[in-house]
Design a protein around this nucleic acid. Structure first.
Lengths: 196, 196
DNA sequence: GTCTATATACCGATAGAC
DNA sequence: GTCTATCGGTATATAGAC
């Protein structure tokens, strides 16, 4: 592999790591370059700056994770196992590293305040949602956003208080969303046992 | 009201506003002081620094919102209306301002990386969860974290792509979580009986 | 392509006038 | 109590040597 491609990859890896652990604001260009065994000049040469590095990360690195997760879900059988596979990739990622959810949060936060980044992230989200919607038969595209939101939200609660989110309850909650939305879309009018 | 209390309140208001809109890192002490009609010295005199301001905000201002939301939910009748009330406070907050969810995300992000802030936030979360758990009869405390997570997660998706989250589907997803978790606690029988 | 050196700007925090 | 002035540190980004 050429030196240039090697540097590019090292910079992207280092950026993903530092953005996830220290946050996008907390990771300086110098720190990223140093972690990649280069100096800041390399970042500006390859990506034009910090934001260029971020955009590149947004469209490349994270898509790979989405794909890997989708593959694991497709391999599982039954709704419960699929939900468990989904949640497992949040708590103990088999593929890649444990940093992808943290990076996901960082990218969201950054994009939620900048129009250009927001539009790019929206496209990526839509791809991920579409995969979920087709997997769980949600013709009007409601399951995808809800599931992805719940995954991120449960992870937020877990990061603050790990004891509050057991694997079992996470799976139950995820299943509840899928079943709840599916019942709505199929208009089956199943009995919803209201208590209280 | 004395000048001192007035200044304190103005600084807290300005901090909540700027932390929510620009992010905690993006809001400088000078900017906060200026927005409050004071100078940075006032911040250090009242709160000892930026972090003191943040902690004060974490334990005071946001608790009021939690309380207000709980009151609105308690006033609603039926699960659907309760979920709608919950979601309405995310999309179109009646009490306070539209910034509280953004501030919630900022506080979470800050706390997720700092132990002391994380423990303080955990206590606040636990108070909010306990209210939800007693409201929806979740003896083992699973509904609270799941609902709060889903609310925050749905808001994340909505901020990136508003068209993906309709009010109707949000309510359906929230209801799905409550029903899903409630069924688990009663069916498994591994926990206490559901109280009504 | 990658480095060193540097320009420019802003940050959090402090000291002391008033 | 609140102000001005300022220190020390660090950020992004650039210019030019190699």
């Amino acid at each position: 592999m050429e030196r240039r491609a090697e540097t590019r990859r090292a910079l992207l890896d280092a950026a993903a790591e530092l953005f996830a652990t220290r946050g996008i604001d907390g990771a300086s260009v110098d720190a990223i370059a140093e972690a990649a065994g280069r100096t800041s000049g390399a970042v500006y040469d390859h990506f034009g700056g910090k934001e260029g590095l971020l955009f590149c990360l947004l469209e490349g690195w994270v898509d790979d994770v989405t794909e890997a997760v989708a593959a694991q879900v497709a391999a599982a059988e039954g709704l419960d196992e699929q939900m468990a596979a989904l949640w497992r990739n949040v708590t103990r990622p088999v593929t890649g590293d444990g940093r992808w959810i943290a990076l996901e949060h960082e990218l969201w936060r950054y994009a939620s305040r900048r129009d250009e980044a927001r539009e790019r992230l929206a496209l990526r989200y839509q791809r991920a949602w579409a995969g979920m919607d087709s997997e769980w038969a949600s013709p009007d595209g409601t399951v995808g956003p809800a599931l992805m939101g719940l995954l991120l939200g449960l992870d937020m609660m877990r990061r603050i208080d790990p004891s509050a989110i057991s694997d079992c309850m996470a799976v139950e909650a995820l299943r509840g969303v899928v079943l709840g939305l599916r019942r709505e879309t199929t208009a089956a009018g199943e009995t919803k046992q209201e208590r209280r």
